[in-house]
Design a binder for these strands. Structure first.
Lengths: 134, 134
DNA sequence: CGGGATCCCGACGGATACTG
DNA sequence: CAGTATCCGTCGGGATCCCG
């Protein structure tokens, strides 16, 4: 296939769309947390550490919709809800894991590049912190 | 390392942060477009197809800051600016490519899951399309 | 040509309160 | 316990105009 083949563009958009979904603030953390086994709502929330219950719900719904997790309700009192990766979800963990390794290995390089860029271009972007008491 | 080792959490956050950056609307498309060689601003904009000049600028600045692309200005009249992947940027293309392949291979599965979910849960979320001429 | 500066709007996401 | 509902601020991102 030619580098600038039309289909190439569509494929990139497909990737873009996937990244738009799992590239949000919490999806990857949720999927990774479920990577080692099923978890209940509260357990997930405790494990993820900064997530609000609203965003956990939203994220789980989205992942369920896309077929990455299943949601099982146990009609106890009070209710228990268990979340678990589907086979598609576990499958997704592979390429995401590769990206994860890359991110961990190259984090220092990115940080260094960023510092260098900031030092060079915008030493003046510093906030006055407090504009005094006018 | 234990599955719930504290460092595990930090690593996931690192991955989350990377995804937050390249998971935006255009970064991957830009990086992919530059994957086959350097391009000028206008060429990039023509190639990407729906991007505004503001977002192309913003995205390129961000990628430059993180050390993924270089920006070279040719002081002709009018100016020419060429963008090119760094070694870090080309390196990033590997895991992203893996994710890309996954997205392309499993697109149908995700779409199917989504349709199924929507049919089951929300047949009423359909928009009125056009609210008539009030 | 390659942007910078503004305006504007909708989506994302946090905080809080309430419910089955 | 596992949400839903509401309010609200922030930010992404498009449109438009201008500039060296």
């Amino acid at each position: 296939m030619k580098p600038d083949h039309p289909a190439r563009t569509r494929e990139c958009q497909t990737v873009s769309e996937l990244l738009s979904r799992i590239g949000d603030k919490w999806s990857v953390l949720v999927v990774a947390s479920l990577g080692e086994g099923a978890l209940r709502f509260s357990a997930l929330r405790r494990r993820i550490n900064g997530i609000s219950q609203k965003m956990l719900t939203t994220t789980l719904r989205s992942l369920e919709r896309d077929g990455f997790v299943t949601r099982t309700v146990f009609p106890t009192t009070p209710v228990q809800v268990e979340y678990q990766l589907t086979e598609l979800g576990r499958d997704l963990l592979c390429p995401v894991g590769a990206l994860a390794e890359w991110a961990i290995r190259n984090q220092a390089r990115v940080d260094a590049a960023r510092e260098k860029f900031d030092r060079k271009n915008k030493p003046a972007t510093q906030r006055p912190a407090v504009p005094l008491n006018v």
